[in-house]
C-alpha cells in the first residue's frame, strides 16, 4: 500500500545493527580473536606430539585435552579456526572482486559482453560446485591452491549475478539519465549511484559465501580430498578423532562445534533487517 503523505512521516531510520547482526558480529569477533591471538599466545606447535598425553581429558596441562597423538586440542583448534577463517576470506575476496567487476561491466555495456559472461556463469552454475572443486583437486590433491580456486570459481557467480541485476535496475532509472544530462561521468555514476545500492547485498553475499567456503573446505578435508593431516583443519580433525569417539566423544565434537559457531556467526551477520 502506498502512502502519498510519506514526506510527513519523520523517518525512523532502519537500524543497520539489528540484534541478530550484533550477536553474529560479536561471535565472529570472539572467534577471530581466538584464531588470531590463540596461536601466538599459546605458542605451541600444533603438531607437537606427546604420547604420554594421548587422548588426555580437558584439565590443567591441556585446557581442552589432547588428541590421540597427544597434541594440544586448544592449539590445534586455534590453528584450525585461523585456517578456515583465512581461507574462506581469501576465497570470497577472490570471488567478489571479479564477480562485482564483471557484474558492473555486464550491466553497463550489455550486448555481446553480457551474453558471453552470462553464458560462462550459466555453464559454471550447471556444474555442481563440489564437483568443480574435485576436478581441480585431482590435479594436485591435498593442497590449498586447487581447493581455493575451485571454490572461488563457484562463488563468483552469485556476486556477478546480484551485481548485474541490481546495477541494471539502477542504471535504468531516470536519475541516472538526469545525472548524465547534468554532465556527470560514468565513474561518478558508478561510485555515487550504483555502488551504494550494491553495498548491502555485498555484505550479505560475503557472509553467505564465507559460510559456504568454510563448510566446503571442512567437508572436503573430512572425506580426505581437501587438506590432509597433520594440517590442523577442522574437518580433518573430526575424521582423525572419529575412531576414538567411544573414549573421547568431546574431542570429536569440539571441532564440529567450532564450525557450527563460525557458520552461525556468519549467517547471523548476513541477516539484515527483519522484513
Amino acid at each position: 500500500m502506498t502512502l502519498s503523505d510519506v514526506t510527513l512521516i519523520p523517518v525512523a531510520r532502519q537500524h543497520w545493527l539489528t540484534p541478530s547482526r550484533a550477536f553474529g558480529l560479536g561471535l565472529l569477533a570472539l572467534l577471530a580473536l581466538f584464531s588470531l591471538l590463540g596461536p601466538v599466545l599459546l605458542g605451541h606447535d600444533p603438531a607437537a606430539q606427546n604420547f604420554a598425553a594421548s587422548l588426555a581429558q580437558p584439565g590443567r596441562d591441556y585446557l581442552l585435552g589432547a588428541d590421540h597423538y597427544g597434541r594440544s586440542m586448544l592449539v590445534r583448534l586455534a590453528h584450525g579456526a585461523r585456517l578456515s577463517f583465512g581461507m574462506a576470506l581469501l576465497t570470497v575476496v577472490t570471488a567478489a572482486v571479479p564477480g562485482v567487476l564483471f557484474g558492473l561491466l555486464a550491466a553497463w555495456r550489455g550486448g555481446v559482453l553480457e551474453r558471453v559472461l552470462d553464458f560462462v556463469a550459466t555453464v559454471l552454475l550447471a556444474l555442481p560446485g563440489l564437483l568443480l572443486v574435485l576436478i581441480l583437486l585431482a590435479f594436485a590433491p591435498g593442497t590449498f591452491g586447487p581447493l581455493y580456486l575451485g571454490l572461488a570459481l563457484t562463488l563468483w557467480i552469485e556476486f556477478y549475478r546480484m551485481t548485474r541485476a541490481t546495477a541494471a535496475t539502477v542504471l535504468k532509472q531516470p536519475h541516472i539519465e538526469a545525472a548524465r544530462l547534468l554532465g556527470f561521468g560514468s565513474g561518478y555514476i558508478l561510485r555515487c549511484y550504483v555502488l551504494p545500492e550494491i553495498r548491502p547485498i555485498l555484505m550479505t553475499l560475503t557472509a553467505f559465501g564465507m559460510a559456504t567456503a568454510i563448510i566446503a573446505i571442512s567437508t572436503l578435508s573430512a572425506i580426505s580430498v581437501g587438506l590432509q593431516p597433520p594440517t590442523p583443519e577442522l574437518g580433518a580433525m573430526i575424521v582423525e578423532l572419529l575412531p576414538y569417539y567411544d573414549e573421547a566423544p568431546f574431542h570429536v565434537l569440539m571441532p564440529a562445534l567450532l564450525i557450527v559457531l563460525l557458520v552461525l556467526g556468519l549467517q547471523l551477520t548476513a541477516r539484515g533487517e527483519v522484513r
Binding site: M1, L3, S4, D5, T7, L8
Partner: peptide
C-alpha cells in the same frame, strides 16, 4: 502532497 489527506484515509 504532504497535507495529510492520505493519512486521514489510512
Amino acid at each position: 502532497s504532504g497535507s495529510g489527506k492520505s493519512l486521514v484515509a489510512h
